[in-house]
C-alpha cells in the first residue's frame, strides 16, 4: 500500500553536471520498498511542474541500528522536474509517493543473476543487488555508458560483492563499445546446465537487444521500463507499452501497475517507441 510522505531531503550528492543522488528521510517507504520499485516525486510545491515524476528507488538507507530510514534516487537532469531535483538542498521537503510497481523477482543459487544497465538505467539495480546478496546469489553487473565519466557508483556494487563488467562507447573505460558485446560473449560461454537470469534497464534499443540475446540463449530476462507517467497508480493510462497477455495478443499495458518490471518476451519491441 503506497504512502505519500512529506519527505525531508537529507543529502544531494552531485555526481557530475548531469547526475545526482538525492536522499530522503522516509522510513515507512524504506521499510516497504522491494527491489525495482519506484516512487512518484512532486518536484515543486506549486503547480509548475504540475505532475509528479517517477524514480526508481536507488538505495534503501539505514540508521545506525540497521533499520530502514530513507531512500535515495538517482537523478539525470533532462527536463524541468529533474532540473529542480538537481538543485534541491538538504532540509527542503518534497512529496514522495510509494513504493509503487511490480518489483524484480530475485533468483536463488545455484542460479546466477546478471544485471545489465545502460546510463541512468543503473537506478533499480542497487536494491536488487542487495536482495541478491542476502540470498548469496552470485551477481554480475554489466554497466555501459558513453564514456568513463558517465559511469557512476560502481564502488557501491563492489561493496556488495557484485562482479562488475564495464563498457564505454568511446573506449575510455572497460570494454570499448556497447555493453551488449560482453553480455553476448558471457551468454555464449555459459553452459546451458548453469542457470542464469538477466535483469535489464536502460535505453529501449539496449533493452531490446538484451531481450533478443536472452531469447536466443534461452535465458529468463526481466526488463524494467521507464515511461512517461501521469499518476503511478493506474489511473491515467499514459504509461502504456505493447505487452502480450496470456493468450499471446499484445495490448497497451500500464507500466505503473503491471510493471515497471516485465518479462522481456512479453514486450512487442517492434511496437515500442524509442526513447
Amino acid at each position: 500500500m503506497p504512502l505519500d510522505v512529506d519527505a525531508r531531503v537529507i543529502a544531494n550528492r552531485r555526481l557530475s553536471a548531469d547526475y545526482n543522488v538525492v536522499a530522503f528521510e522516509a522510513p515507512a517507504i524504506a521499510r516497504a520498498a522491494r527491489p525495482g520499485q519506484f516512487v512518484m516525486i512532486k518536484t515543486s510545491r506549486g503547480l509548475d511542474p504540475l505532475l509528479r515524476r517517477p524514480f526508481s528507488i536507488f538505495e534503501v538507507l539505514r540508521d545506525e541500528t540497521g533499520a530502514p530510514s530513507g531512500i535515495s534516487i538517482f537523478n539525470k537532469r533532462i527536463g524541468a522536474g529533474t532540473s529542480l531535483l538537481a538543485q534541491v538542498e538538504p532540509g527542503e521537503r518534497l512529496q514522495v509517493l510509494g513504493p509503487l510497481g511490480r518489483p524484480f523477482e530475485p533468483v536463488d543459487p545455484p542460479a546466477d543473476a546478471w544485471m545489465i544497465a545502460g546510463g541512468v538505467g543503473l537506478a533499480p539495480f542497487l536494491t536488487l543487488a542487495e536482495a541478491l546478496a542476502v540470498r548469496r546469489t552470485r551477481t554480475t553487473l554489466f554497466y555501459g555508458a558513453r564514456r568513463a565519466g558517465e559511469l557512476y557508483c560502481v564502488d557501491l556494487f563492489d561493496a556488495l560483492g557484485v562482479r562488475v563488467v564495464l563498457a564505454t562507447e568511446d573506449g575510455s573505460r572497460g570494454v570499448p563499445g556497447r555493453i551488449t558485446a560482453p553480455l553476448e560473449a558471457a551468454l555464449g560461454e555459459r553452459p546451458l546446465g548453469e542457470p542464469v537470469k538477466l535483469f535489464v534497464c536502460g535505453p529501449t534499443p539496449m533493452m531490446r537487444a538484451c531481450a533478443g540475446l536472452a531469447r536466443v540463449h534461452g535465458r529468463a530476462c526481466d526488463v524494467s521500463l521507464e515511461q512517461v507517467m501521469g499518476c503511478g497508480l493506474g489511473g491515467c493510462y499514459s504509461c502504456v507499452v505493447p505487452a502480450r497477455r496470456d493468450e499471446g495478443h499484445p495490448h497497451h499495458t500500464r507500466t505503473c501497475i503491471e510493471g515497471p518490471v516485465f518479462d522481456a518476451q512479453r514486450i512487442v519491441w517492434d511496437a515500442m517507441q524509442p526513447h
Partner: peptide, 23 residues
C-alpha cells in the same frame, strides 16, 4: 479498445494535455 500510441500526455503550464484515445 487499445487507444493511441504513446506519448499520450505532456505537461503544460499548470496543466497537461492528454490523448489517451479512450483505451
Amino acid at each position: 479498445r487499445e487507444g493511441h500510441a504513446p506519448p499520450r500526455i505532456v505537461e503544460t503550464p499548470s496543466g497537461m494535455l492528454n490523448a489517451i484515445g479512450l483505451q
